[in-house]
């Protein structure tokens, strides 16, 4: 019975990782950069929730505002920090992203202090099914993240903007000569990634209601690992990697003897997968036909 609960919790954490990993993988696929400040957008979302749940007591309103402000900060960061570096060396972009990450963390620390803040969005409690006591947040997290992923997949497959995203990620120059404004597509990508990060912050706070300036670092690194395991640049890969890592993490934590080594186990999986398949599970090697 414990197994079922653990599995459900694993899927639920996996869903959250997948949402965050999608942000990394889409930005990588389309802007060809690693946005290491992506995790910090989760932190921004957390503080927005802290402020507005405290101020209004309306969780839904606070979630909408968090999504909106995360999207705003996401595109501002792209316009201010990354856009001027279009065409610059990847290393310059990478170090800039790390700089943006520290900037956001320091800003949060100046505004809110280093001590964790306590924020309860809602207490969802548990439901009992026979002998199973299931935490409701797990079910909500899993269901909502799957719905969002389905929505995103449909958006990419069936809308003009979505197909333009695939085109840009596959071949930027060819996309441009189709008449696609690549800058607009990059903006849309950051909007979607930041929205997903905001939703992830809600799920994190439902599970553990504390927020600090480094709140986004750990989930950011884990989700980035998930994206690389699945194959960075691949959308199904990010989803698969997210669920895989979530399940491994929760199962590993459920065994007291190996729980302290959970992070090590996750990164070991990353190393093994990179040794066996350097492009990740669903990552493709591009073959040029001449």
């Amino acid at each position: 019975m414990d197994f079922i609960i653990t599995f459900l919790n694993g899927l639920s954490l996996g869903g959250v990782y997948a949402l965050i990993a999608l942000g990394y993988t889409m930005v990588y696929g389309i802007a060809k950069m690693l946005n290491f400040a992506h995790g910090d957008i989760i932190m921004v979302g957390g503080y927005v929730l802290f402020v507005f749940v405290g101020l209004t007591g309306e969780p839904i309103l606070a979630i909408i505002l968090a999504a909106f402000l995360c999207m705003l900060i996401g595109i501002s960061m792209e316009k201010a920090a990354y856009k001027p570096l279009r065409g610059a060396s990847p290393l310059a972009v990478l170090i800039t992203a790390i700089g943006v990450s520290y900037f956001l963390q320091s800003l949060a620390q100046i505004i809110f202090g280093a001590a964790p803040k306590f924020v309860v969005i809602a207490d969802l409690g548990t439901i009992t099914l026979g002998s199973l006591v299931i935490p409701v947040y797990s079910i909500v997290t899993l269901v909502v993240s799957i719905l969002i992923m389905i929505g995103l997949s449909l958006f990419i497959k069936f809308t003009k903007t979505g197909r333009a995203m695939i085109a840009v990620s596959e071949d930027k120059a060819a996309a441009q000569i189709m008449g696609i404004n690549v800058n607009n597509i990059i903006t849309v990508t950051f909007l979607i990634g930041s929205f997903l990060a905001a939703i992830a912050s809600v799920f994190y706070l439902l599970k553990a209601p504390n927020i600090s300036p480094t709140f986004g670092s750990k989930p950011g690194i884990k989700a980035f690992t998930a994206a690389v395991i699945g194959g960075i640049g691949s959308i199904p890969g990010a989803m698969l990697g997210g669920f895989l890592l979530g399940i491994v993490e929760v199962f590993s934590n459920s065994v007291p003897q190996i729980a302290p080594y959970t992070d090590a186990i996750e990164f070991l999986i990353l190393i093994i997968i990179l040794l066996v398949r350097p492009t990740g599970i669903l990552g493709k090697k591009r073959r040029e036909k001449v």
Partner: peptide
């Protein structure tokens, strides 16, 4: 203006029809 680039550069992951749709983007 429109270009057929060197090395064709069709969108490898899209279908023939979807490639044509990309061509009609504007």
């Amino acid at each position: 203006m429109s270009e057929v680039p060197e090395g064709r550069h069709v969108f490898q992951e899209l279908t023939v029809y979807e490639n044509l749709m990309m061509g009609a983007y504007t």
